[in-house]
């Protein structure tokens, strides 16, 4: 998956099914390869395996979280892997942002609560943009570019139906009702995203999306100073990367056009981004 090789071991139908559907385009590597994350999902060793079975997420043999209901093994895997990446991967400045690319230039969509980032990201991925990542803007501090990390896009609640209508050709995994974030379904990353997952890109735009029901479409330019603070705040490891993180955010902001985008209608938002980036 992008820069990482993940070893997953489990004997769970509830994990295998969605994995086959949502990771079908990803390459497999030889089992002797060096892996970045060694993940095991298994039942906790207790009597619950017979009633309301549960599942544990283990990294390097250590159990990390409280057990989840076994039928949500796949969302647990996705969420757990994100957690592992965020904990360890300080070779990158990790932005909590969606990243897409067109004609060699990338757009960053940083997440804020209720931003509708994943929905907008999924929509753009079906309108001519290559998906680099929905959750992680991985800015490689050595190569000074964004590393793709394509993964299934987690769509929540109403977004699931919105994307089904917006892109009928999109492949969605099973619905997981009653997760902590409501009902979740995952969008299989388009094949182009997986094909291009070794091609790092430099960003040209930073757009902070904000979804509000009934909002009029509005694109507003941000000052560099405002955008800097908001992007720095958005990074998972801004503090840990210290001076290097500061320089990286500066580099991104200096070379990007920075905007606030307020929207309600997905088609309008996509058209506005097309106009901006044409």
């Amino acid at each position: 998956m992008g820069p990482f090789i993940v070893q997953v071991r489990a004997r769970l139908e509830s994990l295998a099914q969605p994995m086959y559907v949502l990771y079908s385009d990803f390459p497999l590597v030889d089992s002797d390869s060096l892996t970045d994350f060694d993940v095991v999902l298994q039942c906790p060793p207790n009597l619950r395996r017979w009633i309301q079975p549960q599942v544990l997420f283990k990294l390097d043999g250590r159990s990390l979280f409280e057990p989840f209901p076994q039928d949500t093994a796949f969302p647990l895997f996705e969420w757990g892997l994100n957690w592992c990446v965020a904990q360890r991967s300080h070779q990158y400045l990790m932005l909590h942002a969606a990243v897409l690319e067109r004609e060699g230039r990338a757009i960053l969509l940083p997440a804020t609560p209720g931003s509708g980032k994943s929905t907008l990201c999924a929509a753009l991925a079906y309108r001519g943009w290559r998906l680099l990542s929905d959750e992680f803007g991985l800015f490689d501090l050595e190569r000074r570019a964004l590393a793709p990390f394509p993964r299934p896009v987690a769509l929540k609640n109403q977004s699931i139906e919105v994307i089904r209508r917006f892109a009928p050709e999109a492949v969605l995994g099973p619905l997981f009702p009653k997760t902590r974030k409501g009902t979740v379904a995952h969008l299989r990353p388009p094949a182009s995203a997986v094909r291009g997952m070794d091609e790092a890109v430099f960003p040209a735009w930073v757009v902070f999306p904000k979804f509000t029901i009934g909002a009029r479409l509005a694109l507003r330019a941000l000052s560099k100073a405002q955008a800097f603070l908001r992007l720095a705040h958005n990074a998972f490891n801004y503090e840990i990367t210290g001076a290097e993180g500061f320089r990286a955010v500066g580099e991104i902001i200096r070379s990007c056009g920075c905007y606030d985008l307020s929207y309600c209608d997905l088609d309008e938002a996509v058209a506005e981004i097309d106009r901006l980036t044409a």
């Binding site: 970045d36 360890r88 300080h90 503090e239 840990i240 990367t241 210290g242």
Partner: peptide
């Protein structure tokens, strides 16, 4: 490996 090592050293320094 070098990537993970760089990450670990950054974390330790912090």
């Amino acid at each position: 490996v070098a990537g993970h090592m760089t990450a670990a050293l950054r974390l330790a320094a912090h």
